[in-house]
Amino acid sequence: MSDMTMTVSGGSGAEEALRFHVAEDHHPENATLLGFWLYLMSDCLIFACLFATYGVLGREYAGGPSAKEVLELPIVAVNTTLLLLSSITYGFSVLEMQQNRRGPMMAWLIVTWFLGAGFITLELTEFTHLVSIGAGPGRSAFLSSFFTLVGTHGLHVTSGLIWMIVLLVQVGKKGLIPANKRRLMCLSMFWHFLDVVWVGVFSFVYLMGVLS
């Protein structure tokens, strides 16, 4: 939005009223949510690059362990369940927010936090196990791209967890004011977006990796 636009008619400008749009007039109300959506789309491009890297390098084992040998589907199945459940509990939190019920909203948010924390814990367990059996990120191109892709997703989930704590404090102090509602909706988009990325990860990396 330009700071000040002025419309002047071509020839006889005198009788036509000058119209000013000043920046302080009003702010597009949806700008935060739309802006956050644009951020998510750019984040999507980061993941696209990482997926492409994995797609290219995912079968280059350099004599090291293959995807089939090191990836354990039962852990991933539990992880996927945790993340999917955390998506729906976040949904419940949003529903409570719309009813303006602060207590239940925070309770569902805390449930979501623990599900997300469980996801990260399991993922870190998997990573430490891989490193301990000598399948660290330095072992082969496959493992480098695997750790980068899955690790970046895990880093995002960790950021989401930190954000959730901040939001809980904010809601606890100020209640469900419009600003906090907006923040909750932004985090909602972030959280569900991470679940979307995880769908790609478990399908493309884990399931197809084990099949190969």
């Binding site: 949806n30 935060t32 949510l33 729906i88 949904g91 419940f92 719309q98 419009p178 509602k181 907006r182």
Partner: peptide
């Protein structure tokens, strides 16, 4: 703030889930 515009319902979330 655009927040109330978003239509959410329990039915929608459960169907999606």
């Amino acid at each position: 703030d655009g927040v109330d515009q978003i239509h959410v319902s329990l039915k929608g979330y459960m169907t999606g889930f």
